[in-house]
Every structure is written in structure tokens, then in C-alpha cells.
């Protein structure tokens, strides 16, 4: 019987290079350039904000606001990063956030209070992710089409539930989470949730078998299958994860707005994809970075904030966002070709 491996023996007599974990070598060095450039962009934005609106922008309340706004889309982006890393795409995230937020805020659900709302939001998110995952992994549907169908149906269902009305939340304990009294050392609870999701996401992607399999499936699905990885089950789990993130995001949105609306999460899919891509996750799969995605989210949210403070209209914001996406991808292509 073959032993798995016998101890190393070096015939050349040369000493091998010092043991170092791969992440601390080329890979991280490479990621570092990327991360540093994103941090640079963020620093420039903060500088612009500080110069144009010195009193308002750097105010603690404003920074808390920026981070809070980043939290909702940020949680969605973490899930999206996993899906894109695996070579997939989830166009339904915005619609799932909308459906989860209205389902969790119906009169019937609100009777179960805080826990009922949280439970429902998460469950609806996971449920939608399950449908996406089954269609894609076992139904053989292309992710783009399956999640596009989910986008349409979830939005429709959200409209049907609310009939276009805003569902005000009357659960005190939940609303208190958004109040200043609930801040922990000046940090809003929503931001803490975002931070926890980010850290978990990073650990899962970089330190677990789940993360490794995600990257393998995205890098070469056929090779992953022939290496003995259950590619279909992995895909199912990935869309479940994205749905779970949408459910959490919907809950954050309910806390933030004190209501559930069928128009919630509008165009979140585009924001989340854009943030992941400018962060350095490959749209074709095989490489993903949670750090980059989160920085991407922060960059976009900061821009929105600076524009709002300077009373610029959203049309200008949109143009600026588009330009940044183009610039970021061009810069990345340059850095990728000169390792």
C-alpha cells in the first residue's frame, strides 16, 4: 500500500529556501500593491472631502453615516465576491434584499417582534439563494439567466406583498439599534455587523476548505471536478451564502430605515459587482479578495457622500462612478501584466 508521503529528501544537497507560507510571498505582495492603490484612492477621496467640506465631512456623525450606509451594500458585496470568485454571478441580490425586507416587515411578521423580523429576513434570503443555487448547480442553468429570473420574480413578489406601500416597523427594540444610544464606543451596531461579516468572509475565503474549493471551481471547474471536488454542491452553497448575505443586508436596511419597501435594494447588484471588480476580484473567476471588495464599497460610499455634501446631483455621481470603474480596471490590467 502506498504511504501518502515519505519525508522529504534532497538529492542535490542544496538547502531549500526557508519555509514560508505562500500567502506571505508573491501572492500577498501582489495583492498588497492592489490593496495599497485602493487605500490610496480612498485617502485621496477623504482629502477631497476634507478640503471641499472641512466642517461637515470629517465630522464624527458624517463618518458614522458613511460607514452605516456602506454596511448594507457591503454585506451584499461580501456574498457577491464569493459568487464571482467561483466564476458565477448573482444579479438577484437587490431584489432579494427587497423581498426579504418586505416579508420581514409585514404586519403578521412584526407580531413576532425583533427575533421574528431577523429570522424572516435571513430565511427569505437563504430561500431565494437556495432556488438560485438549485437552478444553477443541479438545473444546469447559466447563473446570469437563473439570477435574472430571480431578480424579476423577487421584485414582483415584493411588490405584491406591499402593494407599493411602505411598511413602517413598530418594533421598539429593533429601531433602538439605529439610535445613537446603541452605538458601541461610537460605532453603530450596523457597522459592527458589517465588520463581523467581512472578517468571517475573509477567513472563510482564505483559510477554509470552502474558500479553497470556491477558488478552485472558479479557476477551472473541470479540473476541480476531476480532482474530486463536488462542484455542484459547492455552487449550491455559494448561492445560499449570497442569499444569506442579502437576508442580513435586508435586516440592516430595516433597522436603518425603520421600514420595508419593495423598492429597497435598487441596483444593488450593479453596486456590489462594481465594488468586487474594482477591488480586484476576477469576473472570470479563480481569484477573489474580500479586502478589495470592502475597499471598493467604501470608495463608492465615500464618493456618494462627498457629492451629496457638495450638493451635486446624482447624475454627476453616476458618471463619476462609471469613470472610476473604468480607471480601476485599466490600472489593474497594467499592474497584472507587470508582476
Amino acid at each position: 500500500m502506498t504511504q501518502p508521503v515519505s519525508p522529504p529528501r534532497d538529492s542535490t544537497g542544496k538547502l531549500p529556501p526557508v519555509d514560508r507560507l505562500p500567502a506571505f510571498r508573491g501572492l500577498l505582495a501582489h495583492t498588497d500593491v492592489r490593496t495599497l492603490s485602493l487605500l490610496g484612492v480612498l485617502a485621496v477621496l477623504v482629502l477631497i472631502g476634507g478640503v471641499t467640506r472641512p466642517d461637515e465631512f470629517l465630522d464624527t456623525r458624517n463618518l458614522q453615516l458613511v460607514l452605516t450606509q456602506a454596511s448594507v451594500i457591503g454585506v451584499v458585496t461580501v456574498g457577491m465576491t464569493f459568487v464571482i470568485t467561483s466564476g458565477g454571478i448573482d444579479l438577484s441580490v437587490g431584489a432579494i434584499v427587497a423581498l426579504s425586507s418586505v416579508w420581514a416587515t409585514t404586519v403578521a411578521t412584526q407580531e413576532y417582534g425583533f427575533a421574528g423580523i431577523l429570522f424572516t429576513a435571513v430565511l427569505v434570503g437563504v430561500g431565494c439563494g437556495l432556488v438560485n443555487g438549485v437552478l444553477i448547480a443541479y438545473g444546469g442553468m447559466v447563473p446570469f439567466i437563473a439570477t435574472l429570473a430571480m431578480l424579476a420574480s423577487a421584485r414582483g413578489l415584493a411588490l405584491q406583498i406591499t402593494d407599493g406601500r411602505t411598511q413602517i416597523v413598530g418594533v421598539r427594540g429593533l429601531l433602538d439599534l439605529g439610535e445613537r444610544d446603541a452605538y458601541v464606543l461610537g460605532v453603530p451596531p450596523l457597522v459592527i455587523v458589517f465588520a463581523v461579516v467581512t472578517v468571517c468572509g475573509w477567513l472563510i475565503l482564505n483559510r477554509t476548505t470552502f474558500g479553497r474549493r470556491t477558488v478552485a471551481v472558479g479557476g477551472n471547474a473541470e479540473a476541480a471536478r476531476l480532482a474530486g471536488i463536488d462542484v455542484r454542491r459547492q455552487r449550491l452553497y455559494l448561492y445560499l451564502l449570497s442569499g444569506l448575505c442579502c437576508g442580513i443586508a435586508a435586516f440592516l436596511l430595516i433597522v436603518l430605515s425603520g421600514s420595508g419597501q419593495n423598492t429597497n435594494g435598487n441596483l444593488y447588484e450593479l453596486d456590489a459587482i462594481a465594488a468586487a471588480i474594482i477591488g480586484g476580484t476576477l469576473l472570470s473567476g479563480g481569484r477573489g479578495t474580500i479586502t478589495g471588495s470592502v475597499l471598493g464599497v467604501l470608495i463608492f460610499t465615500t464618493i456618494t457622500n462627498i457629492f451629496a455634501l457638495n450638493n451635486l446631483q446624482s447624475d454627476v455621481q453616476q458618471i463619476a462612478k462609471g469613470a472610476i470603474i473604468v480607471a480601476a480596471v485599466l490600472v489593474q490590467r497594467r499592474t497584472a501584466s507587470t508582476p
Binding site: V215, A216, G219, N220, E222, A223, A224, L226, G286, R287
Partner: peptide
């Protein structure tokens, strides 16, 4: 095409 993850170590 069938065995290697070309982006990986």
C-alpha cells in the same frame, strides 16, 4: 484544461 488551476500555486 482538465487538471491544473493555472492561477494558483
Amino acid at each position: 484544461a482538465q487538471a491544473l488551476l493555472m492561477l494558483e500555486s
